[in-house]
């Protein structure tokens, strides 16, 4: 019912409201990131409260932007790079808000929000018009496959941010120069624990995304696996995280090594996401 309402609202006053919402949320993410970075250096509690409120507001606008676009396009808006990047950022913020609610690590925002803003900024530079969906993509798998993939990638993005925080904190503790960020960064143990949990969340999501993608490919193109660059890189990413989990459980690779691996894994995620789309031609290029 609300979707219909949004469809009527969509071309409100000749302005595309989804773009309006998108730009509003991007500006708020920008201000929030700035405050979050200042907080990392100054450590005043008021700053962390301020940027959290801004992120919540930005997230509401962001959600409205996605919902209005969904109503206009009648499918999950993830079919061009603008939509996909914005949706990816949305998933990261969703996870961020959840972790912040659960663990209250104020300084997490200083590491995650700039990444979110960068994603929004690159998204904003991309063409935004809604094109008719190619018949190949018209399938209920679209929503399932992409949602799984994006949530998984968002978990890996968070693990990346947490991994960087771990390395900084571990550096402070090893070199015994305890100043600045040291006080505001949480304990190594909690960073390692959240990092591990995020990867155990992201890995099954990625696995399911690859499986649903294969099933979808079978129904759309008639073959499960075609060694398309996106598929290859997803598989490489999958292997990296499989190794992360394996060495952790089997060989006790935790802490610093786990943090470094989660950073390498995310580089692979980013390449799968952007690199493949921008550099290599393949059947995922519609995205």
């Amino acid at each position: 019912m609300s979707l219909a309402a949004f469809r009527i609202l969509y071309p409100l006053f000749g302005v595309k409201v989804d773009i309006l919402f998108f730009e509003g949320s991007m500006s708020l993410y920008f201000v929030a990131s700035l405050i979050a970075v200042v907080y990392a250096f100054k450590g005043e509690k008021l700053l962390s409260r301020t940027f959290l409120i801004l992120v919540v507001l930005a997230f509401i606008l962001h959600t409205l932007s996605i919902v209005t676009r969904l109503s206009a396009a009648s499918h999950l808006p993830v079919t061009n790079l603008y939509e996909a990047t914005s949706f990816f950022a949305w998933c990261i913020v969703l996870l961020f808000l959840f972790i912040e609610y659960r663990y209250r690590i104020g300084i997490l925002g200083s590491f995650i929000l700039p990444l979110v803003f960068m994603l929004m900024l690159s998204s904003s530079a991309l063409p935004k018009e809604i094109k008719p969906l190619s018949p190949l993509l018209q399938s209920s798998w679209l929503g399932v496959h992409t949602l799984l993939a994006f949530l998984g990638d968002a978990a890996f993005a968070m693990a990346f941010g947490i991994g960087i925080m771990y390395l900084i904190q571990e550096h402070y503790l090893k070199t015994k120069r305890l100043s600045g960020l040291f006080e505001r960064l949480p304990s190594l143990q909690i960073l390692d624990e959240i990092n591990y949990r995020l990867i155990t969340l992201g890995f099954p999501l990625l696995t399911l995304a690859i499986i649903t993608g294969a099933i979808w490919a079978q129904s759309a193109w008639g073959s499960y696996w075609r060694w398309d660059p996106k598929e290859v890189w997803s598989l490489i990413t999958w292997f990296i995280y499989a190794i992360v989990l394996h060495v952790r459980i089997a060989a006790g690779w935790r802490g610093k090594k786990a943090a470094i691996l989660s950073i390498i894994g995310f580089v692979s995620v980013l390449f799968t996401f952007f690199g493949v789309n921008l550099l290599i031609k393949g059947s995922h290029t519609f995205l």
């Binding site: 503790l173 040291f182 006080e183 949480p186 304990s187 190594l188 143990q189 624990e193």
Partner: peptide, 18 residues
């Protein structure tokens, strides 16, 4: 911030273990 050795040890422990 700790200004005795034993408190400094506690503060460090809290940054390693949650």
């Amino acid at each position: 911030n700790a200004v005795s050795i034993s408190y400094a040890a506690v503060e460090l422990a809290k940054k390693i273990f949650e």
